[in-house]
Simulated scan of single mutants.
Amino acid sequence: MSRGSPVVTATGGPRGPAHLVLTAAVARRYYLDGRSKVEIAEEFALSRFKVARLLDDARASGMVRIEIGHPGAIDVDLSSQLMATLGLTHCVVTDTPEDDPATLREHLGAAAAELLAEVVTPDDVLGLSWARSVSAMATALRSLATVPVVQLTGALARPDVDDSSIELVREVARVSGGPAYFFYAPMAVPDAATARALRRQPEVAQAFSRIGSVTIALAGVGAWAPEQSTLYDATSEAERSALAEQGVCAEISGVLVDAAGEPVRSALTDRMIGITAAQMRAVGEVIAIVYGRAKVDAVLAAVRGGMVNSLVTHSTLAEALIDAVRAGAPGVKGAG
């Protein structure tokens, strides 16, 4: 091109200063202000076809560069990698720092809410187990197919917990518009006889009768260690030690499992009011919302045991899980 020749645009006309200014203004209205092409055409007294050509020119010239991203900072590549490594049905990994647990729960809850809104259909039955991360999901949830919502575990009364399994189910059912099946009972009671009596109570029995129809469930995963499981923190020191000696590695919705993912039967199991290991394994998809690198072994145990087959987590835990599998963690689908 000779010096002084006009620059040719994608629309076939010269790109002078006026054209550049008009193109930039139209692009700003469309991409940043969210205005429709019809609205832009009316504002600038242009045809819709002229607006479309200007937007094409903005992209072709490099004035507008479109990058594929996600407002929730989802790491798409790491999500795909972890999903393949563990053989998961769904996997969402957020690029969120681990140093602020409250912010981490908020981001994971928002990501889980988006996933749930996407995958739940009117043919599903949704089951909810209480966990701080699941509660964060309920807070972020804005839309959901009209489905029954079933409580899977009793309430865990703790001074640092503001809500409960009951409120969790009610909140999600309000968004869904479907029926809520909940019950007033603690997660664990003092003895097995009390647990048996409570399970026979009408509202508990009604909710439990629905567990077999649950197709998608949300749960947390706790490592059997201090501050890594609300159930662990709620038990006595003697019981924690005894369960550790029995090989308990993790708990998923109150279900205790060893490092191989096999259920560990104990006195605590008999005192629990909630979903059983067999029932959890029968659910088509169990989505665990998990955070903290200390839970690597617990997550792998939950996946090995068929208790969990989808994950919402953050990048540092996802990388640690992949590293553990590559280092030879046994019995994980997709490893090697």
Rank of each mutant, 00 (worst) to 15 (best):
A225W: 06
V134C: 14
E118P: 00
V189M: 02
P226Q: 11
T121P: 09
A223T: 04
E262C: 10
V161G: 00
Q246F: 11
L144H: 09
D77Y: 10
V299F: 08
R59V: 15
C249S: 13
R199V: 02
L126T: 11
A288G: 01
M83A: 14
L321C: 05
P122R: 11
A267P: 07
L78Y: 09
L268N: 05
H90M: 02
Y31L: 13
G109W: 13
D100P: 06
A259V: 14
M63Y: 07
D297G: 03
L108T: 08
A173P: 06
G127A: 02
T11W: 03
R132L: 14
R142H: 08
C249R: 13
A324E: 12
S79K: 09
E114C: 03
P71N: 14
A131K: 07
L141C: 07
H90K: 04
D233C: 12
R158A: 13
K37L: 14
A157H: 13
E114P: 01
E245M: 00
D258L: 11
L115R: 11
S266G: 07
S209M: 02
V221Y: 04
V248H: 04
K333C: 10
L128N: 03
R170Y: 15
G274C: 12
L311P: 14
E67R: 14
R196V: 08
R210Y: 01
E118F: 05
E285D: 08
L126P: 12
S47F: 09
A217R: 00
E167P: 02
I252Y: 00
K37I: 13
V299W: 05
A84D: 10
S133C: 10
R170Q: 14
A301H: 05
S143N: 09
G13C: 03
I40E: 09
R59E: 15
A117P: 00
L268D: 11
L88T: 03
S315H: 12
L20D: 04
T96D: 07
M280N: 01
S135K: 05
A18H: 08
D163S: 15
R293S: 11
F49E: 14
G127T: 04
R142F: 01
E245D: 14
E227W: 04
I252Q: 01
R271N: 03
A136I: 07
F182N: 03
L256H: 15
V51W: 00
S79Y: 06
A207N: 07
S80Q: 14
H70W: 08
S310V: 04
L32I: 15
R142Y: 00
R304A: 10
